[in-house]
Simulated scan of single mutants.
Amino acid sequence: MQHNMMSWKKGLAALCLLAITGLTGCDQKTDAAAQNVGYDGLSPNTPLRVDPQTRTVTMLVQVNGRFLTDDTRHGIVYKGGSNSQKSLFIGYAPPKALYDALKQIHATPGDNMTMDNKETTHVAGSKLAISVTWAGAAKAYSFDDVIVDSNGRKPDMRFGGNLTAAEEKKTGCLLCLDSCPVGIISNAVYTYGAVEKRGEVKFTGNAALLPPDGTLATVSFNVME
Rank of each mutant, 00 (worst) to 15 (best):
G161M: 09
P155E: 09
L177K: 07
A140Y: 10
A165G: 15
G160K: 07
D144C: 07
G136S: 04
D156I: 14
Y141G: 04
A165E: 14
F143N: 15
G152C: 00
G183C: 12
D145Q: 12
S179D: 06
A137T: 00
D178T: 12
D144K: 03
A166K: 01
N151T: 03
D149K: 11
L175D: 11
M157H: 02
C173A: 05
T164G: 10
V182W: 03
S179K: 01
D144W: 09
G172K: 07
L175R: 05
S186R: 03
G172T: 07
V148S: 00
D156C: 14
C173V: 01
R158H: 12
L163A: 02
T171E: 14
V146E: 06
L177Y: 14
T171M: 05
I185N: 12
V148E: 00
F143C: 14
K169D: 06
P155I: 15
I147K: 03
F159S: 04
T171G: 08
L174Y: 09
K154R: 08
I184P: 02
W134E: 04
C176H: 15
T164S: 14
A138G: 09
G172V: 06
A137F: 01
S150T: 02
I147M: 11
L175Q: 13
D178Q: 09
D144T: 06
S142D: 10
A135D: 10
L174H: 07
C176G: 09
E167L: 13
D145N: 11
G172A: 02
A165M: 14
G152F: 01
A165K: 14
F159K: 02
Y141V: 00
D144E: 13
R158L: 14
M157A: 11
A165S: 13
E168N: 11
N162S: 04
T133S: 12
T171F: 06
R158V: 15
S179N: 15
D149P: 10
E168K: 12
K139A: 12
N162C: 00
E167N: 09
S142R: 12
F159D: 07
L175N: 11
N151A: 13
G160I: 02
L175I: 12
D156H: 14
R153E: 09
E168S: 05
G183R: 01
G161F: 01
T171C: 13
N162I: 06
E168I: 03
I147L: 08
R158G: 15
S150N: 00
I147H: 12
L163V: 00
